[in-house]
């Protein structure tokens, strides 16, 4: 058989024109994409896109707790407790910023839809805040459980109120209304701390536990309603 020159091989056949190349390449890309992103990838994605101001406020709060603990001055604890409602207000408004920035329609139509985005944001920020309050309770006083109770109760009260506000009022106005609600909670806290501080006596611990359980249940209910409502516009 005649030896074929390798260079002549390319003259033997005409290079085929690609047919439906785009559809074919799309199929390969789809197979690769089929697995999607893992839960932890989505979680880290949402962490990356959370505003720095939220993290900075959390750091500032913990810093204030440490300073108050160092100086052991009871007057410093009042502003520290006052920061708790604003901590949760920032977290709730951050979780719902898709609505505030008009991104909800786009995010509802993606594979990992708005429901997933809000759920992950609430999870990240909620867990972070609870961990922060748990740590802070060690520094507030020698009595860990009552300290935690006195911080968690206004926390969940503000959370329930803010979650109701963000699902009732659309757009950026909801941020200001949440701010107003957080301020009201701070005023109530201040009133209790300065005028009715007998509520911090041991005999009222049961009442605090009941109040906390009520606000936690309310927050969970509002949270679920918010997440369910993010499935569609109406």
């Amino acid at each position: 058989m005649k030896k074929i020159d390798k260079k002549e091989l390319h003259t033997f056949f005409v290079a085929p024109e690609p047919e439906r190349k785009r559809a074919f390449m799309r199929k390969i890309a789809r197979v690769k994409r089929g697995r999607g992103l893992s839960f932890y990838s989505m979680l880290s994605l949402q962490c990356r896109y959370i505003s720095p101001k939220v993290w900075l406020f959390s750091i500032a709060f913990f810093g204030a707790v440490l300073i108050a603990n160092y100086y052991e001055a009871s007057a410093i604890w009042i502003p520290v407790f006052a920061m708790v409602p604003f901590l949760v207000m920032l977290s709730v408004t951050e979780s719902m910023r898709s609505y505030q920035n008009g991104m909800e329609e786009l995010e509802m139509t993606t594979r990992y839809s708005l429901k997933t985005v809000i759920y992950l944001r609430l999870l990240v920020l909620g867990s972070g805040n609870l961990l922060l309050l748990l740590l802070s309770a060690f520094f507030v006083s020698d009595q860990f459980f009552p300290s935690l109770l006195y911080m968690l109760t206004p926390y969940f009260l503000t959370a329930a109120g803010n979650l109701w506000i963000v699902r009732t009022f659309a757009g950026r106005e909801s941020t200001y209304i949440c701010l107003g609600f957080a301020a009201l909670v701070v005023i109530a806290e201040y009133g209790i701390l300065t005028r009715w501080n007998f509520f911090f006596e041991e005999r009222y611990l049961g009442a605090w536990v009941i109040a906390l359980a009520f606000f936690v249940a309310l927050s969970v209910r509002e949270g679920r309603t918010v997440i369910k409502g993010s499935l569609s516009l109406a």
Partner: peptide, 13 residues
């Protein structure tokens, strides 16, 4: 003339 033709299987599309 001999030619090569590639036919993609894209019934789904």
């Amino acid at each position: 003339k001999q030619t090569i033709k590639v036919v993609h299987n894209t019934e789904r599309e």
